[in-house]
Amino acid sequence: MEMITKVLTANALLTAFAVVGIVMWLSNILSAKLTMGRVHGSAIAILIGLALAFWGGIATGGHKGLADLPMLAGIGLMGGAMLRDFAIVATACEVDVEQAKKAGLIGVVALLLGTILPFIVGALVAASFGYTDAVSMTTIGAGAVTYIVGPVTGAAIGASSPVIALSIATGVFKAVMVMVGTPLVAGLIGLNNPRSAMVFGGLMGTVSGVSGGLAATDRRLVPYGALTATFHTGLGCLVAPSILYLIVRAIVGG
């Protein structure tokens, strides 16, 4: 047993490849046998991944899900920002330039709405739960944009640590819900073409949520969604601690 642990830990990234490969293999079987292929294998794999992350978090008390187990630390490298961005950029080769151009302006509109709408919802919910000061409302509102915008904004305008934690949790929850919910509503919201994928990427933000949700819906849409989603966090970090904070402060005072 000790020997196995040693080998797996020493080859962390290879262990991750093997584990993820097995998860995907099982998911494809489940998809074909249990749902007759109606639910994508990748959607099931992502759900299994989230469930394993929940279990890992409970088992270790850490914040990085399965990657907190020493044997599975390679999951952290494989699913980390570096390889994620690398693989997303690689999907650009599947982008149809003409299709992307057609969606240009509408993508920008989606980006703006995708920052403002969640911010308003987050700030209002925060206020209704008693966080009525401008700093807390802005921080939790920013968290509803993405889980990176939340803490960046909170740190910039001096929010308290519990409020920042709440804003991160809101953003993570939203990202998780995007991954899980997108395949379910894809038909309803017309998510079957490059343009709506770009609108979707701009509106939902969080590269992780968008790429996971689109991957579970239709692999071919991923590059289009990622193309706009990548600007989402930057835009949020730009406007939330500045313009949006000033607006909230002007409305609620102090």
Partner: peptide
Amino acid sequence: VVAMAAQQD
């Protein structure tokens, strides 16, 4: 992406 999902908090 599956690996990414497996390391969310």
